[in-house]
Amino acid sequence: MSLTAHIPSHRKPRRSAAKSALRAGVAGGVLSTIAVAGAAAPANAAEPVTETTLQMPTLSATQVAAATEQAAADIQQQAQQDAAAQDAAKAAKKAKAEAVHKAEAKKKAEAAAKAKAAAEAKAKAAAAERASRSATRTTLKAVSVSSSQATGSAAAIVSFVTSHLGDAYVMGGTGSNSWDCSGLVQAAYKSIGVDLPRVSQGQSTAGTQVSLGNLQPGDILYWGSAGSAYHVAIYVGGGQFIGAQNPSSGVVEHPLSYDQPTGAVRVL
């Protein structure tokens, strides 16, 4: 065996013929492309190339600051307008609520004033009516019945009904200060010891029938037919009678012409 048989060789290995041919072909193709481009360049160089350039406006620092300041002012103004609108809406709502409250208070005050005025008017009317009855009663009590008009029992009956002028009329009332028509007549005769029927129908036939042109004090006057009369009173002389007339007037004195009776009876 040779001494150099196991020493590796420092020579580069030869490239294969195939790889060399491939590389040569690539290089040739590149050179051909360059050659074609070089030939075409003069022809294309004759054609002018037009380029369009869009130039953006250039803003200075002052302009940018002014624009920023204007935008801030616009925002602030809008905020102020919005705040003013909200304040106006709140004020309008508050004003409306106050107006409603005032209207309700005024309505209540007017109603209270009307109620007070009505109560005062009613009280005055009642006081005037009481005063009128009292005055009438006092005046009539002061007037004595002359002996030519009534004497004895008749005078006592006249005195009794006169003393109750101004008393109230109450349906079914028999005294001592409230009467209906027949209750007053019955009490007047009872004061002299004479008992009469309780109701006007019976009282209209309790004595002797007399004409209205021949009346004497103490006679019982009646309205309606005898036996079915609906109202009675006492003749007191001088063309006057006293009776419990109705709830609005109570016990009063009237002339015969006020309400002409139908007939009369004499018990005494």
Results as ranks from 00 to 15, higher is better:
Ser148Met: 07
Ala119Gly: 12
Ala150Glu: 00
Arg130Leu: 15
Ser159Gln: 06
Lys124Phe: 05
Val158Leu: 01
Val158Asp: 02
Thr162Val: 07
Val161Ala: 01
Ala150Ile: 01
Thr138Asp: 09
Arg130Asp: 15
Ala155Tyr: 01
Ser159Lys: 05
Ser134Phe: 11
Ala154Val: 00
Ser159Glu: 03
Ser134Lys: 10
Ala150Phe: 00
Ala126His: 14
Arg133Cys: 05
Ala142Phe: 03
Ala119Trp: 10
Thr136His: 10
Val161Phe: 02
Ala125His: 03
Gln149His: 09
Val143Met: 10
Ala119Leu: 12
Ala135Asp: 07
Lys141Asp: 08
Gly152Thr: 03
Ser163Ala: 14
Ser134Asp: 10
Ser134Gln: 13
Ala142Cys: 04
Arg137Val: 08
Ser132Gly: 14
Ser163Glu: 05
Ala156Leu: 13
Arg130Asn: 14
Ser148Gly: 07
Lys124Pro: 03
Phe160Gly: 02
Arg133Tyr: 07
Thr162Asn: 04
Ala118Ser: 14
Arg133Trp: 08
Gln149Asp: 15
Ala125Phe: 04
Ala119Ser: 13
Lys124Arg: 12
Ala150Pro: 00
Ala126Ile: 11
Glu129Leu: 15
Gln149Leu: 13
Ala123Trp: 06
Ser144Ile: 05
Glu120Gln: 14
Gly152Val: 01
Ala121Asn: 08
Ala150Leu: 03
Glu129Thr: 10
Gly152Leu: 00
Ser146Lys: 04
Thr162Ser: 05
Gln149Ala: 15
Ala154Gln: 03
Ala128Ser: 11
Lys124Tyr: 06
Arg137His: 11
Ser132Arg: 11
Lys122Gln: 14
Val143Gln: 08
Ala126Thr: 15
Ala131Val: 09
Thr138Gln: 11
Val143Trp: 06
Thr136Arg: 12
Ala127Ser: 13
Arg130Thr: 12
Ser132Trp: 09
Ala156Lys: 08
Lys122Arg: 15
Ser147Asn: 06
Thr139Met: 13
Ala131Asp: 14
Val143Phe: 07
Ala123Glu: 10
Ser144Pro: 05
Thr162Ile: 04
Thr162Met: 04
Ala126Leu: 14
Ser132Asp: 13
Ala121Arg: 07
Phe160Lys: 01
Ala121Gly: 06
Thr162Glu: 03
Ala127Lys: 13
Ala123Lys: 10
Glu120Trp: 14
Lys122Glu: 15
Ser147Lys: 05
Ser163Trp: 00
Ala155Pro: 00
Lys124Cys: 04
Ile157Pro: 00
Ala155Ser: 02
Val158Thr: 02
Ile157Met: 01
Arg130Ala: 12
Val161Arg: 01
Ala127His: 08
Ser148Phe: 06
Ala135His: 10
Lys122Ala: 11
Gln149Thr: 12
Thr151Ala: 05
Ala125Met: 02
Ser132Glu: 09
Ser148Gln: 09
Ala118Lys: 15
Ala119His: 10
Ala117Cys: 08
Gly152Glu: 00
Ala128Thr: 09
Thr151Arg: 04
Ser148Tyr: 04
Glu129Gly: 11
Val161Asp: 01
Thr151Met: 04
Phe160His: 01
Leu140Lys: 10
Arg137Asn: 08
Thr139Ala: 14
Arg137Phe: 12
Ser146Pro: 06
Ser159Phe: 04
Val143Thr: 11
Ala125Gln: 04
Ala128Ile: 07
Ser146Trp: 03
Ala121Val: 05
Ala135Thr: 06
Ala121Met: 04
Lys124Gln: 07
Val158Glu: 00
Arg130Val: 15
Thr136Leu: 13
Ala127Pro: 05
Val161Tyr: 03
Lys124Ser: 06
Lys122Gly: 13
Lys141Gln: 12
